[in-house]
Simulated scan of single mutants.
Amino acid sequence: MPVTEFAILPLKHPLTENSTSPPALLQKLQIAREVLEEASKYKFYYFQQIEDPSTMYIIGKWDSPEAHYTFLASPENQKLLELFKEDIYIEETNGKIMQMWHLDDDVFAVPSGAEWVFTAPVISCNRHFVLKENKPSFIEKFNEVRGLLEKYTKPYGVVGGWRIETEDEEKEEWVLFSGFESVDHHMEFAKTDGFVKYREIVGFVSAFELKHLRAVVGL
């Protein structure tokens, strides 16, 4: 089964909340997407974080992590790194650095009867950090309450996957994407009766990170 690439790109030139990306950067991103899609034979998409608009994301797909690693070592990728050296923190600077890992599932799959989550005006990216011993219980609980979230997010589906390259051998990471009409729409979920049951997953999570994404204007 193909795996999902999830990359976080901190920009050197911050964007204001309502701005679009500079034309030169958009052109470079388009070049990068063409190279990535040629190498992987799959589509790639760009998103911008709403909480911090200077943070961008790449979400794409590869046949395997190894196929992606082969590309990372290629001359084509080295040219991309050179192309973006003035735009992205490729090496760590003041705690900012480009990050990339893979999810063990295909988030491009569209659940039956739903719309693809990444077509929503706002996409929540929820990172759940789960102790290894709690993983089976977390999976069981999430499968039990998942329908409550899906009912609220309709017509958009809910997709996720486990991070393959973990940072802590004692923890696993579950990344979940769900679609909303706005950030406020997402926040209103916490006021519903369904959320009372859904939040039971918190008992199996050691830490949690929530960010909101939207498609990059112009791409």
Rank of each mutant, 00 (worst) to 15 (best):
K61V: 12
P10K: 06
V117P: 03
P23D: 04
G147V: 09
V122E: 02
L149W: 03
W162L: 07
W116R: 07
Q48L: 08
N126H: 11
L72V: 08
C125R: 06
V35I: 04
L210W: 02
W101Y: 15
M100V: 14
V117A: 00
A39D: 10
E181Q: 09
A73C: 15
V196I: 10
L148A: 07
S178A: 06
E82S: 12
M98P: 11
G160I: 06
M187D: 10
R199F: 10
F129I: 13
R33K: 05
E172I: 13
E173A: 12
R199K: 13
W62P: 06
H13D: 07
I97M: 11
L149C: 00
G194F: 02
D193H: 05
L15C: 00
F189R: 00
L25V: 04
L36H: 03
K171G: 06
P53S: 04
S137T: 10
L11P: 08
G161R: 00
E86N: 12
E144N: 13
A215T: 14
I88R: 11
E173K: 07
A67M: 03
T192F: 14
F189Y: 01
K211Y: 15
G157I: 00
L11A: 01
M1R: 14
K154I: 10
L15S: 07
A73E: 15
P10L: 00
D193R: 10
F71H: 04
L176A: 13
V183Y: 03
V216I: 04
W101N: 10
G160V: 01
A109Y: 14
K154D: 09
P22M: 12
T153W: 03
Q27H: 12
T20K: 12
K28L: 09
I8C: 15
V217C: 12
K96F: 13
V158R: 02
V159M: 10
V122G: 07
D105V: 15
G157F: 01
K191H: 02
S74W: 05
R33E: 08
E170D: 14
H185Q: 12
I164M: 00
V122Y: 03
K96Q: 14
A7D: 04
N126A: 13
G194I: 05
P65Y: 03
V196F: 10
E200F: 01
M98R: 14
E165C: 12
D87I: 01
V175S: 02
